[in-house]
Amino acid sequence: HNLTITQGKLFFHYNPKLCLSEIHKMEEVSGTKGRQERNDIALKTNGDQASCENELLKFSYIRTSFDKILLRWEPYWPPDFRDLLGFMLFYKEAPYQNVTEFDGQDACGSNSWTVVDIDPPLRSNDPKSQNHPGWLMRGLKPWTQYAIFVKTLVTFSDERRTYGAKSDIIYVQTDATNPSVPLDPISVSNSSSQIILKWKPPSDPNGNITHYLVFWERQAEDSELFELDYCLKGLKLPSRTWSPPFESEDSQKHNQSEYEDSAGECCSCPKTDSQILKELEESSFRKTFEDYLHNVVFVPRKTSSGTGAEDPRPSRKRRSLGDVGNVTVAVPTVAAFPNTSSTSVPTSPEEHRPFEKVVNKESLVISGLRHFTGYRIELQACNQDTPEERCSVAAYVSARTMPEAKADDIVGPVTHEIFENNVVHLMWQEPKEPNGLIVLYEVSYRRYGDEELHLCVSRKHFALERGCRLRGLSPGNYSVRIRATSLAGNGSWTEPTYFYVTDYLDVPSNIA
């Protein structure tokens, strides 16, 4: 807008934040220059609390790290170098490059900038070799853009010569660093050979998330399962459950009422301010606690030095998902009996873990797994792929695949051998790939016309006998059925096997 004052003059007093240069501009645009008398524009009460600059400061050096910015700028000295009290560095987070010096300023003089007072450097006698002032900004957020400017702080001049310097606002972004852990990993099994893994992005990506790394490792069953005799009275049979499938998407929606109208769909109840505040506090606490764990609990591995020492970490090797089922080394339970199943799973520490690289999504279907087997899954978020990966501390989750139908069934015939004193040795093959492992066998036998009897055969007993022995049988026709019990439950009964026990007292003698 054009402003013209045809008559009258300007009068400025007691404006401590208004620089004289701005008042002189007002004289020019209003056409009143030359009308004012000496005392109409006070030299001592206008701009006496402001830094009124008329020179431009330029930054000469900028260096960044993930949490620091090192700045240096060209030296500046007023005509009387004693008038320079120091520099004021202003900075704040700036997602967009549209910041002005006066953003967030209120009537009390406060604003949204963080201000650092910096002492002037030592003055050199040689004007050509003056030290460049600077400042190291610490405690910054990774991968965050900051708006920065600097200006001088000078003393009051009796001659009211307006001098000083100020830089333009520059924008500097800190470097990326390792992201925080992925949030809320959930693993479920939808079949006997697959596990579905879902997660949420890290709360602090500290860069642009480029991919996720998912490692999985087959877990050995508890050692007590191999040692305890679950045929003993009072000892509860062990059981394991597989990871249940995901709930429906509708039930997972946030901010939804727990109660549904019987007449149909209901609208979600909005969260109160107290609920939102509580969630923010919980989120802040979780982030602080995660940072504490990362800094205190997890110790970084030592990389190899120039002395030739090897990095103890196993090298990563990509495998196809079809090879995942046989990740671990199978060892027989008892070496003397080769027909026992290889369900003991000690994992070799030198073995390469299978892994998958996930790009542009937060889910993965891990296939080719062994049925009813526990897996430990390790999830890392990465925001750099080359020249070397920059990934987060791992988040861990466990899951067990679903049982395989008929995996616990005894394959092959049940054979028998009759000894003296009416002892019958029953023999059968253990299931080759049971659900988890076989903890015991149930032997059901009966003599024709009598009630059915049951015998429990422990895992250890089966390994020693290759089956079991029935003792003290009365003469007669017998039928026997056997079924295995694994961590997933009972298998199917075998087809009945028949044998006849004679009275050993009636056996004919070869003595003449």
Rank of each mutant, 00 (worst) to 15 (best):
S203G: 10
K317R: 09
I276V: 08
F215Y: 11
G476D: 01
V214I: 15
L232M: 08
D311N: 10
E221G: 15
A381I: 01
H371L: 11
R353Q: 15
L232E: 07
E282V: 11
T502Y: 01
V397F: 14
S367F: 09
F419W: 12
V345F: 04
S239G: 03
Y259P: 07
P354F: 08
N206K: 11
C456L: 02
V334L: 13
T343M: 07
L232W: 02
S284K: 13
S363E: 07
T210S: 15
F355Q: 07
V480L: 07
L232H: 11
Y478R: 00
P354I: 14
S203P: 02
Y504P: 05
L464R: 13
E433S: 13
T502D: 06
L277T: 03
D291E: 13
F285E: 15
S274F: 01
P403M: 06
S274Y: 13
S262K: 05
D408Y: 01
D323N: 12
C231N: 04
F419Y: 14
K278A: 13
Q219Y: 15
D408N: 14
I418L: 10
F215E: 05
S274H: 11
F355C: 13
E281C: 04
K406L: 08
L464V: 08
G306E: 08
G306R: 14
N339K: 10
I482R: 00
H352Y: 05
K302Q: 09
L369Q: 02
A488F: 08
E282A: 10
E350W: 02
S262R: 13
R313I: 07
H454A: 04
L440Y: 12
L237N: 06
D408F: 00
D273A: 13
E221Q: 12
D229Q: 08
N295A: 10
L237T: 06
L487Y: 12
E310I: 03
E260H: 15
C231R: 03
A381G: 06
I482W: 00
P244S: 13
L237C: 14
D250I: 14
K233A: 15
F499V: 12
S283D: 15
S257K: 06
A399R: 08
G322V: 08
E442H: 07
L213V: 06
N421L: 12
N339D: 11
S341Q: 14
E495M: 02
T210Q: 06
V365I: 15
D250V: 08
G322I: 11
T343C: 04
A512T: 03
Q384I: 05
I410V: 15
P387H: 06
G476E: 00
S444G: 11
T386R: 14
N422L: 08
P300G: 11
N206M: 04
T288Q: 07
R319A: 08
H254K: 10
N383A: 09
R353N: 14
L277Q: 06
T415A: 10
T272I: 07
H454L: 08
H416Y: 15
E378W: 09
R370Q: 14
L225N: 09
G467F: 04
L232S: 09
Y504D: 12
F499Y: 02
N360E: 10
Y375M: 09
L453R: 03
T241L: 04
A336T: 07
N477H: 07
K287M: 09
S284N: 10
Y500T: 10
I377W: 06
L437Q: 11
E350K: 08
L321S: 08
E451Q: 15
V424K: 01
A407Y: 06
K302T: 12
E362W: 13
T288Y: 15
R318K: 12
V214P: 01
F298R: 13
Y230S: 05
E404N: 08
V424G: 02
M427N: 01
N477Q: 03
R459S: 10
G207I: 02
N510R: 15
N206G: 11
G412Q: 11
S320R: 10
Y212A: 10
R390K: 06
F246H: 12
P332M: 12
S392T: 01
R218V: 03
G264M: 12
D261F: 09
A394K: 10
V296E: 10
C266T: 08
N383I: 04
P403V: 06
S398Y: 13
S398E: 04
I209M: 10
L369A: 04
S363Y: 09
G308P: 09
